[in-house]
Amino acid sequence: MLLELLAEKGRLLADGATGTNYFDRGLTSGDAPELWNVQSAERVAQLHQEFIEAGADIILTNSFGANARRLRLHDAHDRVIELNRRAAEIAREVADRAGRRVVVAGSIGPTGDLFAPLGELTFAQAVEAFAEQAEGLKAGGADVFWIETMSAPDEIRAAAEGVAAAGLPYVFTASFDTAGRTMMGLAPAELPNLAAALTPAPAAIGGNCGVGAPDLLLAILEITTADPNAVVIAKGNCGIPQVTGDHVHYTGTPELMADYTRLALDAGARIVGGCCGTTPRHLAAMRAAMESHVPRARPDVDEIVRRLGPILLKQAAGRPDGDRPRRGRRRA
């Protein structure tokens, strides 16, 4: 359904943030959002509904951290199928009431563990965890698996292998938040070759989360330069996070996210959405920008900075192998 809708419309709008919107609706720090699928299903459904009303063509299920490795932190590792199935059911029910075609994308985030030899996670264990999650999402009615916020090539490969048995198409996105690369050293330009080596191949690739929208757009430019024919996803954060006490506020305005949408399309993205901090109000502005957009020349770095603000992280060709941060961050 994803590629059919993309062929019909030419470009698609994905939804906004999950975690940061849930925090505004009562989720507390340290709680697992995925448990809301059974504890507060009405709030999960309401956010999906608001994103659809704002114009989303794609909504992501509330299942980012619903793999056994992450759920073990909440003593819920034996509820993987239940929580993923319910996440997809909630999204499916809302999407089916939309009066138009809306893609339900089963969100699959990283395990939060490092692969051997840096950590204890084996490739086989990761494949098993992702396969279990995919089984639940398919049972609940997901149209596509949305593998996101990835850092390690091996974890992308494991996720792709894990979801393959379920027989649905999949996409993957990486988070380029460390000098223009992922925390594990993967560069945006490497994504097309990585995707080409996977069987089956992903329906789309791209970037999400990371830091600010300008940095995300640099990654999109690199991906589309490496493979101009790729179906590319841009799902950038809504401005810059500012922490006040235990509250995180993102600085992006609806006007900024609208301009980010225009730039992402001109950079070659065909699926654009928002990540951390992106509310339905921001998404409505992005929908309007997408609908009215007249294609312009491919932007360069200077234009991105002029329109959206500075690049936050110094871009570098690499980082010492011994300087790897621990993994486990959550898309908000």
Score class of each variant (00 low, 15 high):
I58R: 04
I59Y: 06
L60M: 15
L60V: 11
L60W: 09
T61D: 11
N62H: 12
N62I: 02
S63H: 01
G65S: 15
A66Q: 11
N67I: 01
A68H: 12
A68K: 15
A68T: 04
R69E: 15
R70H: 12
R70W: 11
L71W: 02
R72A: 15
R72W: 09
L73F: 06
L73I: 01
D78M: 03
R79Q: 15
R79A: 14
V80M: 06
V80N: 05
V80K: 01
E82T: 08
E82M: 10
E82I: 01
L83V: 05
L83H: 02
N84M: 12
R85V: 00
R86T: 13
A87V: 08
A88N: 12
E89Q: 12
E89N: 04
I90T: 01
I90Y: 07
R92L: 13
R92K: 12
E93P: 00
E93M: 13
V94G: 09
V94M: 07
D96A: 07
D96F: 01
R97H: 12
R97I: 00
R97P: 03
R97Q: 15
G99W: 03
G99N: 08
R100Q: 09
V103C: 04
V104A: 09
V104R: 10
A105E: 11
S107M: 05
S107W: 08
S107A: 15
G109N: 04
D113P: 00
L114Q: 09
L114V: 08
L114D: 05
F115I: 01
A116L: 14
P117S: 10
P117K: 07
P117R: 04
L118Q: 13
G119M: 02
L121Y: 06
T122L: 09
T122Q: 06
A124P: 05
A124R: 13
A126E: 09
A129Q: 02
F130R: 03
F130V: 00
F130P: 03
F130T: 07
E132S: 07
A134M: 10
A134L: 08
E135T: 15
G136S: 06
G136M: 09
K138T: 13
A139Y: 07
A139G: 09
G140N: 04
G141A: 14
G141T: 10
A142Q: 06
D143R: 04
V144I: 14
F145N: 04
F145S: 11
F145H: 02
W146R: 00
T149K: 03
M150D: 06
A152N: 15
D154V: 00
D154H: 03
E155W: 02
E155S: 07
I156A: 10
I156D: 13
A158E: 02
A158N: 01
E161N: 04
E161Q: 14
G162Q: 08
A164Q: 03
A165Q: 14
A165F: 04
A166L: 05
G167L: 11
L168V: 05
P169N: 05
V171H: 02
V171G: 07
F172M: 10
A174Y: 01
A174H: 02
S175W: 07
S175F: 08
F176L: 10
D177W: 00
T178Q: 14
T178M: 14
A179M: 13
G180I: 03
M183C: 11
M183Q: 14
M183E: 13
L186F: 11
L186D: 13
A187G: 13
